[in-house]
Amino acid sequence: MTKDFEPTIVAFLCKWCSSAGSDLAGVSRMKYPPNVIPITVMCSGSVSPLYIFNAFQKGADGVLVSGCHPGDCHYIKGNFYARRRIALVKELLDFIGLESERFKMSWVSAAEGTKYTEIIKDFVKELKPLGPQKKLRRDQ
């Protein structure tokens, strides 16, 4: 059964780097699995921990937060705050026993279409054997 399992990933992409990077993947006609639904936000620094918890609660099997590389943030330093905040969220989710593979952060620049593609491919590959995320999921 898990073989046919197709995970759903919610990806919070910053507008200036990671969303642009995913655009580049598209322009370059790279291929990755359709399991990821992007939500473009202004900055990785604007991703509240509540968004992440909420996505898992609503049944996301994986959540990705992606921003500009340190030093490249369009808003100078938003990604630095994101890095700290996301680290804490990760520690907390790990601690309550959510598989650490389910929550990821990445730096993807506007030039890194390939990297974005790889990240999504690997993410889906890692999530498949885990099966559906039921721990935080609200009963439907």
């Binding site: 197709e6 969303s19 995913s22 655009d23 580049l24 993947a25 598209g26 322009v27 006609r29 790279m30 291929k31 990755y32 699995p33 359709p34 639904i37 992007p38 473009t40 593609t117």
Partner: peptide, 20 residues
């Protein structure tokens, strides 16, 4: 809604791409 760069151009499976 970006369904070209972030969808149609990066996927092959029509059913899944449509869903996305």
């Amino acid at each position: 809604a970006n369904i070209r760069e972030q969808c149609s151009w990066v996927h092959k499976d029509k059913e899944k791409a449509t869903e996305k």
